[in-house]
Simulated assay, not measured.
Amino acid sequence: MASEFKKKMFWRAVVAEFLAMSLFIFISIGSALGFSFPVVGNKTSTRSQDNVKVSLAFGLSIATMAQSVGHISGAHLNPAVTLGLLLSCQISIFKALMYILAQCLGAVVATAILSGVTSSLPNNLLGLNAVSRNF
């Protein structure tokens, strides 16, 4: 554990997980917030087209992040993946804890940025939908 803590490559991998998770959350959740930005000439404001846009944003952003940081940190990009690798004894406990911490902090930072960016938009519900409004 002490030897990992002192290595530059270890901290580079932790920072890569943080940045990749931040970008992934910002891009994917930002596309799914429910704001309609239709292109009037293309008539791209129907529900089915919005679903395709959100799906493409999630898929392309996770693929891009995996390709970008895969050679640095292994591109876990998900605490569940990190936990699975820990349970299969492929990474150390310290590395798993640091990756999970970096991933969670990256997600929190990205949602804080999204909240700040979208706070002035009209009808800003931050992803609140009809099901969760009834509680």
Rank of each mutant, 00 (worst) to 15 (best):
V81H: 02
L105A: 11
N123V: 10
R133Q: 00
L128T: 12
Q67A: 13
G127P: 01
I29M: 08
S119E: 11
A63R: 00
F18I: 05
V14F: 01
A102V: 05
R47D: 15
K8W: 15
Q103D: 11
L86P: 01
T82M: 03
S132R: 14
S31R: 07
T82Y: 07
M98D: 03
S61Q: 01
L114T: 02
A102W: 00
K95I: 08
G34H: 03
G84A: 12
I91Q: 06
R12M: 13
P122M: 11
E4W: 09
A107R: 06
M1G: 12
V39F: 11
M98E: 07
F10K: 06
K43N: 15
W11D: 03
L77F: 04
M98G: 00
P79Y: 01
A110L: 06
G106K: 02
G84M: 04
N51E: 14
K43M: 13
V117F: 12
F58P: 06
A20F: 03
I113V: 15
S36V: 13
H71T: 10
F35D: 09
V117M: 11
S132G: 10
N78E: 06
L85F: 15
N42Y: 14
Q103Y: 08
Q103I: 09
R133N: 00
S88L: 10
N134K: 05
L128D: 01
M9E: 15
S61V: 10
V39D: 15
G127L: 03
Y99D: 06
G41N: 13
A16C: 04
H71D: 10
V81Y: 02
S28T: 14
S45W: 13
A110V: 02
S119Q: 14
M1P: 12
L125C: 03
V15P: 02
Q103N: 08
T111P: 00
L128I: 11
V15L: 15
E4S: 14
S28C: 08
